[in-house]
């Protein structure tokens, strides 16, 4: 039985193993007198009492430390989740940050190239945001960005991904959606934002949107595709703002 025990354990529990060896010697030599047997028996009894006591104690301490270890592990997992969230979210709006929405855009682009899964993108921008900032200050500007992001989120479908692309500019990726369908989503967003009043001053803002999909725009790169939807947004601004324009080649 001893052979299967890890040598490290034998070193750690050396006193206990000495007691075990003694027991084996005594049990082999039964030519002892009654007194000697009694004496040995009592000695063994005491060794085993101590051994049992120590084992109980060590097990109890082991359990406490195991609990501590698991708690530390759970805390680590909690912190990891918090860290992950803060690495993908925009601090002000709590929607995806630029790097994460770009990651989603890149993934959708790769899926389209590999499996021809169609997707649309909407690039939108708050109209005359500089005027809001200059008139009411940066705090109000931040509030407008935050509230606009909230209104946009409320109009998205579950599968759509939405992120802050720049200062007052946002990008939406709509998988398995063509430009006509994306246009409907964009218009719902536009009207919702236009109807919302923001803050104590009851501010109203409008947004301009550019829409494109992978059928009308077979771009070879992500940058090229973003440029095309940006052109559509630019046209919406040119058309007098507060409107949506679909990219045409």
């Amino acid at each position: 039985m001893n052979d299967v025990i890890d040598p490290t354990m034998k070193k750690v529990f050396k006193h206990e193993f000495i007691a075990l060896d003694k027991y084996q010697l005594i049990s082999q030599d039964l030519n002892l007198s009654e007194d000697e047997l009694r004496k040995n028996y009592q000695m063994l009894l005491e060794s085993y009492r101590l051994l049992l006591q120590n084992t109980t104690k060590i097990t109890a301490i082991g359990d406490i430390n195991q609990k501590k270890l698991f708690e530390a592990f759970e805390e680590l997992e909690r912190q990891k989740a918090i860290l992950y969230q803060s690495s993908i979210l925009d601090y002000l709006t709590q929607v995806y940050n630029r790097s994460h929405i770009m990651q989603i855009f890149d993934d959708a682009f790769a899926q389209n190239k590999r499996y021809q899964h169609i997707f649309s993108s909407i690039l939108l921008d708050i109209d005359d945001f500089k005027v809001i900032n200059d008139t009411y200050g940066h705090l109000t500007g931040d509030l407008v960005i935050k509230e606009t992001a909230r209104q946009i989120t409320s109009q998205l479908r579950e599968t759509d991904s939405f992120g802050r692309y720049g200062g007052e500019e946002f990008l939406i990726v709509l998988p398995n959606t063509n430009a006509a369908e994306a246009m409907q989503v964009a218009e719902k967003i536009r009207t919702t934002v236009a109807e919302t009043t923001i803050g104590e001053q009851n501010l109203r803002v409008t947004i301009s949107l550019g829409v494109s999909d992978t059928l009308i725009d077979p771009s070879k790169s992500q940058d090229e595709m973003l440029h095309k939807v940006d052109l559509a947004l630019y046209k919406a601004k040119e058309n007098g703002k507060n409107c949506t324009v679909t990219y045409t080649p």
């Binding site: 490290t8 750690v12 529990f13 060590i58 301490i61 082991g62 270890l69």
Partner: peptide
């Protein structure tokens, strides 16, 4: 801050 079982035994001894 933390002890594994064999360390507990050694410290005990």
């Amino acid at each position: 801050d933390y002890l594994n079982t064999s360390s507990t035994k050694c410290l005990f001894d």
